[in-house]
Amino acid sequence: MLLQPKPKNARSKRVMVNRDPKVVENSKTAIFVRGSTTSQVILNVLADLYSLRKPDAINFTKKNEIHPFDDETSIEFFARKNDSSLFAVGMHSKKRPHNLILGRTFNYQILDMVELGIERCTPMSEFKAEACAVGMKPLMVFNGEAFNQNENMIRLKSILLDFFRGETAEMVSLKGLEYVISVTTGPPGINGEPGQIFFRSYTTSLKKSGVRQPRVELEEMGPSLDMRIRRVRYPTDDMWKQSTRIPKELKVTKVKNITRDGLGDKYGRVHLGKQDINKIQTRKVKALKKHLDGGPNKRQKTDIEE
């Protein structure tokens, strides 16, 4: 764990205060780091992912001797220096060709990461479709049962969702969904290992459909990646518990006897005490009135006398 530096002036103190934990955190920043040896495939992947992640992204153009699975100090130093909680590291070697590592940090320490092997890459420059605007939130689609059953695929899904979620928005306009990211899994291997992973991104265009809802057409804009999981590092139980803790200010106070269904409709339950039917206020009718002596009323007396 790196030591927290002390601020030397007012400007550096404001920067340190801005990095302190908040009830509502800032949007996460991702850093894209080149390894000591890289291939053109990895350079294209890092450049395209960086363009999708902008403006909350920092691209490192120089080579760095970095191996997150073997030595954590380098990536933790970069995370603290740039105040980032997401990282992507690209490298290439004979043992692990076209290697891409995606991971997250918590309190400037590595939380979890996934190592992917890129088997095929078609960069955005080879597609004719126009790229989406900078800073747009994508619609994420995950196809395949492995994303709900296999632990490695579940971890990869969580990291990808965190990587491309952007700023938190309460409401999203239909016209604001400019592109879609689709992640599909192939058939599993013989030993039950996850199969190939197909990463695709599409731009959306709204067409007239004759009804209120428009017809949506997709056009591939890239990057198009075929990859496979190599190594996965899971977080410790204590660190995962701290990273997923919800502040008290954001916890919803539970109200008694009020529930909501799956559609968001609110239902309330009212508890009443024991009711005495004789004390209920009813319509005042003379025929139903009781006299103090308990005898018949005047009309009944006259009928008896006759």
Score class of each variant (00 low, 15 high):
N26L: 04
T29C: 11
A30K: 03
F32C: 12
V33L: 06
V33G: 02
S39K: 05
Q40M: 10
V41Q: 12
V45N: 04
D56T: 11
N59D: 04
F60R: 05
T61Q: 02
K62L: 08
K62A: 09
K63N: 09
N64I: 13
P68E: 00
D70L: 10
E72C: 04
E76L: 01
E76P: 01
F77T: 12
F77R: 09
R80K: 14
F87W: 05
A88C: 15
G90P: 03
S93T: 15
S93H: 04
K95R: 13
R96A: 07
R96T: 13
P97A: 00
I101E: 05
L102H: 07
G103F: 11
R104Y: 09
R104T: 15
Q109K: 15
I110P: 01
I110V: 15
D112T: 13
C121S: 07
T122E: 06
T122V: 14
E130D: 13
A131V: 04
C132A: 14
G135A: 14
L139I: 02
L139M: 09
V141D: 03
G144M: 02
G144A: 01
E145H: 04
Q149L: 10
Q149D: 07
Q149R: 13
M153Q: 06
M153R: 07
I154W: 00
L156W: 08
K157S: 06
L160T: 02
